[in-house]
């Protein structure tokens, strides 16, 4: 166990923590600042367990934030920044998976699940409204009543 833990630590050493937060980034245009934050929040930090670039204090995250900040200062847009990151680290950095043929399953799968759900619903409803009335059988009802003899409130509570 301990050995395993140590190897885990050894496999990838991370740059040490460094002093920096988003306070250092200023934009003349407040909307640019919001865009900047939105972008780094949707980027996954590569060295941390599961944090965004905005939330991480790992040195690499700081460097990448600086890089993205410089790019924004130079007037590059969100798509260019995403392209910059993806060409180096792959789709892994994006918390919001890009729409492309291999990710169709993620983006259109839910609609299919939704569709299946609706089909199931309508089929059950169709079948139900056609079937004959089969109330609790008399015996079943009797047993139910016996079992949990309810003094006064033997009645539908939720109507």
């Amino acid at each position: 166990m301990r050995v395993f833990f140590l190897t885990l630590l050894l496999i990838v050493s991370l740059p040490s923590l460094n002093a920096a937060t988003l306070a250092e980034y200023s934009f003349e245009n407040p909307s640019q600042g919001e865009d900047f934050r939105a972008i780094i929040e949707e980027m996954r930090c590569l060295v941390c367990q599961n944090e965004s670039l905005a939330g991480s204090n790992a040195e690499l995250a700081v460097d990448l934030r600086n890089e993205i900040y410089d790019m924004m200062k130079q007037g590059q847009n969100k798509d260019e920044i995403i392209e910059f990151m993806v060409s180096r680290y792959g789709d892994f950095v994006l918390y919001n998976p890009p729409l492309k043929p291999t990710t169709y399953a993620i983006w259109f799968g839910p609609l299919i699940v939704f569709l299946i759900g609706s089909v199931v619903l309508f089929r059950i409803l169709k079948r139900k409204s056609r079937t004959q009335e089969t109330e609790l059988s008399a015996e079943e009802q009797q047993r139910l009543n016996n079992l949990l003899k309810q003094s006064t409130d033997n009645r539908d509570v939720n109507q």
């Binding site: 949707e42 996954r44 994006l94 998976p97 291999t102 993620i106």
Partner: peptide, 20 residues
């Protein structure tokens, strides 16, 4: 499970996070 599924099918590493 999507990241795991993609990895297992060798479709590349992806992240599915809060925006999705």
């Amino acid at each position: 499970l999507a990241p795991l599924i993609y990895d297992a099918l060798e479709l590349g590493k992806i992240s599915v996070g809060f925006p999705w």
